[in-house]
Amino acid sequence: MKRNKATNRALKRPKLSGDAGGGRFGYFVTRAVMNIRQNMLVNTLTVGTITLGLLILSLFLLVYVNVEGLAENWSEKVQVTVYFESEPDPVTLRNLTSQVEALSGTANAKFVSKVEALNRFRERLKGQEALLDGLAPDILPASLEIRLKKGHRESAAVDAYVSRLKKIPGVAEVQYGEEWVRRFSTFMSFMRVTGLVLGAFLVLAVVLIVSNTIKLTIYARQDELEIMALVGGTKWFIKIPFLIEGIIQGSAGALLAELVLFGVYFAFLHNAGNFLSFNPADAGLSFLPLEWLAGLLAGGMLLGLLGSLTSLKRFVRI
């Protein structure tokens, strides 16, 4: 290049159209990394704020995921039982069972004979079996115990299932613990609505805090934006390094939040037994699923990107 030799004549300029084109991505990333290094304090504060915000949000998600997992376990107790006046013959039973199994919502159906029912009862009364002495072995009715699939365990769904079940010839008496199912459904709806409202508030708070922090950091660098515009930087030439900086800050914040979350989860799992009446390691507490973690990372990146983009709109007016 002979540009540096040009002293008494106008310098040869590169073609203008290529100035801020896609071919300069390497430059933009380098510029963004250099900006981070040159504004370490401000960047550390921003990443810290994003980390804290996303940590609170992810802690909430962790609790939510586990409470829902727990509720899901409870819902397995939802069971529909068909009672028979007299024990059906094997052909009738096979016919009936296959019809029940064909119903949508059935997870499995298990026949319990009169003898088996009495044996179970005897087992429950362990130590006081004498109470059953003298009773005829056919005192308890035979039954078909039906477990329902996930998604069919709430009040309205169970009601609908039972009315379809009752249409099957041979099914007369059906019981399913209506009261328990109703309460369980109410609890699940309450939990979901509360989770949604709280989650929405948390997301809103995190978005506001993070975008305002980014706005302040960009405000602090107004001079830089002004000079870039003064020396002829195009809108995107000025903005892109800041946007990359935002994405880097967002992903660093999200990764740190996930790391701290894992630390908290791990510490709780192994130490909570000391001050809780149960050992959480045995209770099957789970960490956030991988796709949620990926979502959190994407959320962090988006937060950094959009926070920078909206702030820059105010300060770069070309």
């Binding site: 540009r3 590169p14 100035d19 001079d223 002004e226 870039m228």
Partner: peptide, 26 residues
């Protein structure tokens, strides 16, 4: 002056050429 306090003299002066798409060496 409007110089950027956390950039070196090279970077402060070079910013005009950065915008024009010059490479680092030039």
């Amino acid at each position: 002056f409007k110089l950027l306090p956390n950039r070196t003299v090279l970077e402060n002066v070079g910013i005009t050429l950065e915008v024009l798409g010059w490479n680092k060496k030039d």
